[in-house]
Design a binder for these strands. Structure first.
Ligand code: SF4
Ligand code: SF4
Lengths: 134, 134
DNA sequence: CCTAACAAGACATTTTTTATCCTTTTAGGG
DNA sequence: CCCTAAAAGGATAAAAAATGTCTTGTTAGG
């Protein structure tokens, strides 16, 4: 239960590798994929998602590649995970009202809320700087 | 990410219903399924898993049905969830050594360990008595 | 205009989830 | 001894999600 998917795992490996590079060093997707041992085409999809929300910046054409979108100490593991896996949802009912008709008086509901908070807190407390060994 | 499956959700609903019954009241599967709004055949599979590990006791034939295997205050939500969903595994590497070749020096590994502990702590701190409103 | 590199979308395969059905076993009652 | 009630166990099937791949388009440099 609660298992991170490959996609999430690959995403973390890839962006941590980026965070460990010298500032302004542009990395090729192929280089990152080889370094962290992830299928290049799959990693491409992941980095496209990162790019859309600004977690990484990308440059096309000759001399192109990827850069971290912000300094590593300003990117949390929570952001990275949620970027590719979506929000941390231990159970449907924590999404919002109306997802489960029983939520009004459900005794289990608050437990999932707590689980969600705890997980978010752990992941939010870790930055790419921590992970890259800045 | 980290979403409980229907099976887990159904399992909780079913056993919480049992926990809310008077002591020694035997419940039919059909009754439980109707009360908590779960497909009866699916709930049957779930209760078979419960039965195997003693979370519930079952009796066959006329007058048969299900009873809680222990008093509600001695059954934690963690046990219930793990009974049907398996152990709480935020990432492969928390299972044990050898699951990931990188785990020796991986900076992310300890984070998943912490997530696992936090989730387990929350779920272990809640009993069926709490949930059934004993 | 040729090549390098990422972007985007369609497609394919495998695994997991979410069940349902059928047969077997156990137990009680007439 | 049979009939019915009820759970146990196993096989099967449809739907959804995960895990990639492929093809084509876009952008940029030389
Ligand atoms: S925990 Fe309660 S509110 Fe949440 S999905 Fe289950 S029944 Fe609904
Ligand atoms: S977090 Fe580290 S040890 Fe765990 S699976 Fe990922 S690379 Fe391996």
């Amino acid at each position: 239960m609660m298992e991170l998917t490959r996609k999430g795992e690959y995403a973390i490996r890839g962006i941590v590798y980026l965070a460990a590079q010298p500032v302004d060093r542009v990395c090729l997707l192929s280089e990152i994929a080889a370094a962290v041992d992830v299928p290049p085409t799959f990693l491409a999809k992941i980095f496209q998602q990162f790019s859309k929300i600004g977690l990484v910046r990308s440059y096309r054409g000759t001399g192109g590649g990827f850069l971290l979108g912000r300094v590593p100490e300003k990117i949390t593991l929570l952001e990275v995970v949620e970027a590719v896996e979506g929000p941390i949802i231990p159970n449907r009912c924590v999404v919002g009202t109306g997802e489960c008709a029983r939520d009004v008086s459900c005794t289990v509901h608050p437990v999932w809320k707590r689980v969600q908070e705890q997980v978010r807190d752990v992941l939010e407390g870790v930055t790419l700087k921590d992970l890259a060994g800045g």
